[in-house]
Amino acid sequence: MPNPSLDTSRIRAISIDLDDTLWPIWPTITRAESVLLDWLTHHAPATAALFSDTEALRAIRNQMASLRPDLKGDLSALRRESIRLALTQAGDEPVLAEPAFDLFFAERQRVELFDDAHDTLAFLSARYPVVAVSNGNADVHRIGIGHYFRHSISASDFGIAKPDVRIFHAAASAADVQPHEVLHVGDDATLDAQGALNAGMQAVWINSANHPWPHGGVQPHATVGSLTALCQLLS
């Protein structure tokens, strides 16, 4: 089906994804895992020896995701319990999971925003109420961008993750508008664009890698290659 045209006159609020939309997430996670591993070397050496690289830490996180599917939408709890599992398997004190996670979480907030992220958020927030909608556990206030947002909704706190329409509808309620008055912006074709479309919103897909649209039927109202291009679209 043809790409529907974006109707800017309908937009009364913006909802926007965080990870990989405003900053690249994997460099951040890789660094946080390295900091965690260094901490374990000093405080839980048996665990550090058993899980001696970030790939091993990621593997036990994936194991925990299989063991505890109920934690799928709460990445903080998933990471904390995966650390606890690693400590237990190595024979270290499981109670160390709390300070270990706190260290990891603090490092996870040290993101490097895309060059045009601040300008984009300033542009959007000057025109609309902006609501962050994320399946991740980034804290916009700890990152230092909280002043751009009317509200921030994470799957960890809300209990429901994208692409479920309920988290998108919660974003509309947080902005005090109806779903059809919201433009959702995000990098993930399924979680962001398709989810927003299913929720009755307009959607802009940020597709910097120029991937083909993976779903049949209605496409996003617009596809752009960058945040700067988004601002140009809305100017």
Rank of each mutant, 00 (worst) to 15 (best):
L227Y: 03
T190M: 00
V95K: 14
S152A: 15
N207S: 07
L57A: 04
W213R: 03
M1R: 00
A65I: 01
A199F: 02
P212L: 04
T47G: 06
H141K: 12
V185E: 00
L85I: 04
P220C: 05
V185G: 01
A97F: 07
A170L: 05
A86Q: 07
W39L: 12
T30D: 15
S34L: 15
L50N: 08
G73P: 03
G159M: 07
G225M: 06
F114A: 02
S154P: 10
W23R: 08
T88R: 11
P220E: 08
S154K: 08
S66F: 01
V131I: 13
L121Y: 07
Y148N: 12
H169Q: 11
A229R: 03
W26K: 12
I29K: 10
A203N: 04
D119K: 10
A90E: 08
S134K: 09
H43D: 09
L37H: 15
A32C: 10
I160M: 11
Q202W: 02
V95E: 15
A174T: 01
K72C: 01
V204A: 01
R79A: 11
I60K: 02
F105W: 15
P99Y: 03
A48W: 05
Y128T: 00
N198D: 10
G225C: 00
S134E: 09
I143P: 09
I60L: 09
I60H: 10
L71R: 07
E81S: 09
E55M: 00
D19F: 12
R58I: 02
A106T: 15
I29G: 12
A172D: 00
H141V: 11
T28N: 14
S134N: 05
I25W: 09
A175K: 02
L50T: 03
L197D: 00
H147A: 14
R12W: 01
P129T: 04
V165I: 13
S208Y: 05
L96W: 08
V185I: 13
A56M: 05
W213G: 07
Y148L: 08
V130Y: 11
V204K: 04
F168D: 05
L191D: 06
L67A: 08
S66L: 05
A59G: 03
T223D: 02
G159K: 09
H118I: 15
T28I: 13
V140R: 06
D187I: 01
D115K: 04
D70A: 11
T28A: 13
D20E: 13
L75G: 07
G217Y: 02
P2Y: 00
A117K: 05
V131C: 11
K162P: 12
D92Y: 06
L183P: 00
H169E: 13
T21S: 08
H169M: 03
A122P: 05
G225E: 08
Q63V: 10
E98R: 08
M64D: 00
M1V: 04
F123H: 14
M201P: 01
F168E: 07
T28W: 03
D38K: 14
T223M: 09
T54D: 02
L36S: 13
N207A: 03
L124R: 05
A199I: 00
W26M: 13
D38M: 11
M201E: 04
R142A: 14
T228H: 08
T88L: 12
L78Q: 09
A222D: 01
G225Q: 01
